[in-house]
C-alpha cells in the first residue's frame, strides 16, 4: 500500500471527523474551544453528543464497509452486502424479538440476540445459494433481496400485531442523531471485529478464490466461512442496534476500492475501512446541513447514493459484470 496516498486520505478523513464535531443545531465553534471561551453547555454538547456521534460514524462506517467486503469474498459475488443478503433484516427480526420478550435486556445482550438472528439469516442465504442450480451472478443479490423482504415481512407482521411498528420504523433508516454518550459503546465490539478481519485478511482473500483453491492451499474453507459469518453478523448487529440500517455502504466502498487496487485484502482492507468511515461522515454531514435545523438520517442519504451506484454497477459497467 503506497503510504504517500494513504496518509493524505487518512488526513482527509480526520478533517471530516473534525467537521462532524462542529456541525449541528447548537453552534459550537472550534475557535472558542481552543481559546477557552466555550461555555459549559458547549462542552456538554461536545462530550455527550458530538464526540460519541462522530466516533460512532467512523466505527460504523468502517465496520459496515469491511463486513460488505468479507461477504463479497465469501459469496464470491460483487453485489452482496449485509443489506442485500437478509443479514440486516434478520438483525431487525432479532431486535423485535428482544423488544417482545425481554425489553429490559442490557444493550450487549440485545446485540448478541440480533447477531444470532443475523447469523442464522445469513447462513440461510448462503445455503440457498448452494442450492441454486445455475449460479448466475445476478441471481445471488436477487435471492438475497427477496429473502430480506420476506424476513422483514415477518418482522412487520409481528410488529404490527404488537403495536411496535413505530419503534421498528425508527431503525429502518440509519440515524446517528440518536447516538449519545453511553449508547454507542457497543460499536467498539465492531471495531475489535474489524481488526480481527484484518488479521485474517489473507484467509478471506484465499477463500474468495473458491473452495477448490482454498483446499489446494491447505486452508479449511468451512472454518473461514464460519469466521466470516461471525464477523459479518456481529458487526451488522452492533450497527443496527446503535444506529439502525446503514444501507449499501458495504456495496459501494468495496467495489470502488477493488476497481482501483484489486482484492488482495491485506492491502485493500485499510483503505476499505477508511473510505467507509469517510463516506458515512460525508453523508451524515450532508444530512445535517441540507435542511438545518432538521436532520435527514444518513440512511436516507445513503439510500439514494447507494442505489445510484448499484445501478451504475449493473448498467454502466455491463461489459465486465463478472
Amino acid at each position: 500500500m503506497p503510504l504517500k496516498f494513504f496518509l493524505p486520505a487518512l488526513l482527509l478523513t480526520v478533517i471530516l471527523a473534525f467537521v462532524s464535531l462542529f456541525v449541528g443545531v447548537r453552534d459550537v465553534s472550534p475557535l472558542d474551544l481552543f481559546a477557552g471561551a466555550a461555555d459549559q453547555r458547549d462542552l456538554m454538547v461536545l462530550v455527550a453528543s458530538r464526540v460519541p456521534r462522530t466516533v460512532a460514524l467512523v466505527l460504523a462506517g468502517s465496520g459496515m464497509a469491511i463486513a460488505g467486503t468479507i461477504m463479497q469474498m465469501l459469496a464470491r459475488n460483487r453485489f452482496v452486502e449485509p443489506s442485500t443478503a437478509g443479514t440486516v433484516e434478520s438483525a431487525g427480526l432479532g431486535m423485535l424479538t428482544v423488544l417482545l420478550i425481554a425489553p429490559d435486556m442490557p444493550v450487549i445482550a440485545k446485540m448478541l440476540v440480533a447477531a444470532a438472528f443475523s447469523m442464522a439469516g445469513t447462513a440461510l442465504f448462503l445455503s440457498i445459494l448452494r442450492a441454486i442450480p445455475l449460479r448466475s451472478i445476478l441471481m445471488v443479490p436477487l435471492v438475497g433481496i427477496m429473502l430480506g423482504g420476506m424476513i422483514s415481512a415477518v418482522t412487520t407482521f409481528f410488529a404490527y400485531r404488537f403495536d411496535l411498528l413505530q419503534s421498528m420504523g425508527a431503525w429502518a433508516s440509519g440515524d446517528f442523531s440518536v447516538v449519545l454518550r453511553g449508547r454507542y459503546e457497543i460499536l467498539w465490539v465492531a471495531f475489535a471485529l474489524t481488526i480481527a478481519a484484518y488479521v485474517a485478511a489473507d484467509r478471506f482473500t484465499v477463500a474468495g478464490m473458491g473452495e477448490d483453491f482454498s483446499s489446494n492451499l491447505g486452508l479449511n474453507y468451512r472454518k473461514v466461512m464460519a469466521l466470516g459469518l461471525v464477523i459479518v453478523s456481529m458487526v451488522t448487529a452492533c450497527v443496527v442496534v446503535t444506529a439502525g440500517v446503514v444501507p449499501f455502504l458495504g456495496l459501494i466502498v468495496p467495489n470502488v476500492v477493488s476497481m482501483i487496487m484489486g482484492d488482495n485484502l491485506r492491502r485493500s482492507l485499510p483503505w476499505i475501512g477508511l473510505c467507509g468511515a469517510a463516506l458515512v461522515l460525508v453523508c451524515d454531514i450532508i444530512g445535517r446541513i441540507i435542511n438545518a435545523p432538521f436532520e435527514i438520517p444518513v440512511g436516507a442519504v445513503l439510500g439514494i447514493v447507494g442505489s445510484l451506484f448499484f445501478l451504475y454497477l449493473l448498467i454502466g459497467r455491463r461489459n465486465r459484470v463478472a
Binding site: S136, I137, L138, I304, S307, L308, L314, I315, R318, V321
Partner: peptide, 18 residues
Amino acid sequence: NIHLLVLVGIVLGVLFRS
C-alpha cells in the same frame, strides 16, 4: 439478461423510494 432487468428494476424501486 433477465436477471439484470429484474435487479435494475428492484434497485430503481429502492432509488425511487429513497
